[in-house]
Amino acid sequence: MSACLLGKKVRYDGGSLAVANQVVEQWRADGRIVSVCPEVEAGMSIPRKPAEISEGCGESVLSGDADVIERDGGRVTHEFLTGASIALDLCHKFNIDVAVLAEFSPSCGSSAIYDGSFSGKKMPGMGVTAALLRQHGVQVFSQHEIEEANKAIQQQSE
């Protein structure tokens, strides 16, 4: 689960996106949560410059056809790829096949991300980590789909 959704202040602006949800609290009580912030795992600072995927989405970054760019033009593609790989390694290590990630993030967005213009516009697409996890069979949900994620977990237990 994205660390920011668990209240950890790891976002680019030093904030969090903490979700108050009974299902998440039950997962926490059951010890079912592995927390990750791909950017921080890759060594990026808190806070850090805003970054967006330029001319593409997570799949485009994975294929080498797009980059993750900071607002001032700095290229941070390598860090985002590294963070995604670390998240995938955690999924393998802990046998995780359901992830709940922060929507709109250039790492974690599962159905929509910012469009690369730093104007606040969103577009359909996945972030780098979400795309890599999905390529490897992990079901990825956003913080707005916790009930669906819980159903996916329950179906695996049957």
Rank of each mutant, 00 (worst) to 15 (best):
S2F: 05
D97G: 12
E25G: 09
F118I: 05
L90H: 09
V23W: 02
I69W: 03
A66Q: 02
S110H: 12
S16E: 13
G127W: 09
D30W: 07
I113W: 02
G109I: 08
M44T: 00
I53A: 01
S105L: 04
F141T: 06
F94P: 07
Y114N: 03
A84H: 05
L5V: 07
S157Q: 15
D67S: 14
S63C: 09
S119M: 04
V61L: 07
E52K: 02
H136M: 05
G43Y: 03
G43E: 06
T82P: 01
G64C: 09
R134M: 15
S105W: 09
A29D: 14
K93I: 15
A20V: 14
S60Q: 06
T77A: 10
A131V: 10
S111M: 04
V68H: 07
K9I: 08
V128E: 06
M1Q: 06
A149V: 09
R75N: 15
G56I: 06
F141P: 06
S110Y: 00
R71H: 09
E41K: 02
N150I: 02
G56D: 00
L90V: 07
S63N: 13
G31L: 07
V61A: 07
C91A: 15
T129K: 01
S85H: 13
V128L: 11
Q155G: 00
L88T: 12
K121R: 14
V140C: 11
C108D: 04
S142P: 05
G15F: 10
Q143W: 00
M1K: 10
I146L: 11
F141S: 02
S142N: 05
I146E: 01
S110E: 03
G64F: 06
V19W: 04
K8V: 13
P124M: 07
I113V: 14
A29H: 13
I153W: 02
L62C: 03
P106R: 09
V34A: 04
G56H: 03
K151S: 05
E39Y: 01
S107T: 08
P124R: 11
G127V: 10
A112C: 09
E103P: 06
C57K: 05
G14D: 12
K151V: 04
K151F: 06
G7L: 06
S63T: 13
S60R: 01
P124I: 04
Q26K: 14
I153Q: 01
P38Q: 03
E145S: 13
C91Q: 08
E103R: 13
C108Q: 07
E147L: 12
Q154L: 14
L101G: 03
Q156L: 14
R75T: 12
G43L: 04
A3P: 01
S54P: 00
D97I: 10
G7E: 01
V98G: 03
G74V: 01
F141Y: 14
V68E: 04
K151N: 08
S107P: 05
E158C: 05
Q155F: 01
F80D: 03
P124S: 11
L101Y: 01
D65Y: 00
